[in-house]
Structures are given as C-alpha cells and as structure tokens.
Write a protein that binds this DNA or RNA. Structure first.
Length: 110
DNA sequence: CCACTGACGAGTG
DNA sequence: GCACTCGCCAGTG
C-alpha cells in the first residue's frame, strides 16, 4: 500500500509540490489523505522518495507530532528547488501545486 | 482479533 | 479566516 503512495510521490517534479489529498487521489485512493501522511511517517531517511514535496492542503509543511528539525530541512530543500514561502511560512499552492498531465512540467521545453 | 493512533481533507457555522 | 466535527483505514501493541 505504502509502495503505491511512494510511487506517486516520486512522480512529483522538482520545483513543485503536491498535497496529501492529491497524492492519495493519484495513488488511486482519493479521500485517503491520512494514509499518505501515515506512509510518509513510516519513511526511512534514506528512502528514494522526495517526501519534502508533499505538503498539506494549506500549503504548509506538516510533520509528525512535536518539534522536529525535519520540517526545516524540508523547507530548505523546497527553497533550493525554487519553491518560495510567503510571510506565513506557507507555499502559494496556486503557483506551485503540481498539475499531473500538464505541460508545465518542463518549462524550458518550448 | 480489539482498541488506539496518526505528515489530513472537506464541510459547516 | 478560524474552530469544530466526521470520515478514512493501515500500523502497532
């Protein structure tokens, strides 16, 4: 099950982000956003999954209970890929949300 | 097998 | 925009 979720996350192009619900839908389990987050919680540090590109529906970085340095790493990684955060520490999903099937995946190709 | 938990989402007031 | 409620179901003890 988690394999399916990981597979979808790996399809997220750099510089863009996807919400939990979006990943769930793409994984074939719409409405099961919790399972996505749960799957990520079970991710290993060395996993080949760009989990940092997955944010909640508000465009914020979600993370496990309590304070963790993982969220900071996630933010830095996203910024390194071109994603920007507003003054509220959130990502403008209307600009960075991944659109499967869209041609904006490779902006340089024109 | 039963109960509790948990990186969430959408709807309502 | 914020607070509250319900739904969802795999993992863990």
């Amino acid at each position: 099950m988690r394999e399916r979720i990981y597979a979808v996350i790996q399809k997220i192009p750099a510089g863009q982000v996807a919400t939990y619900g979006q990943v769930a839908a793409l994984a074939g389990i719409p409405g099961h956003a919790r399972q996505v987050g749960y799957a990520l919680s079970a991710l290993a540090e060395g996993s080949p999954v760009p989990w940092h590109r997955v944010v909640n529906a508000r465009g914020e970085i979600s993370l496990r209970s309590g304070g963790s340095a993982a969220d900071l790493r996630q933010r830095l990684r996203l910024e390194a890929e071109g994603v920007v955060f507003d003054a509220q520490g959130r990502i403008p999903l209307e600009l960075f949300r991944w659109r499967p099937g869209s041609r904006i995946e490779v902006e340089k190709a024109d």
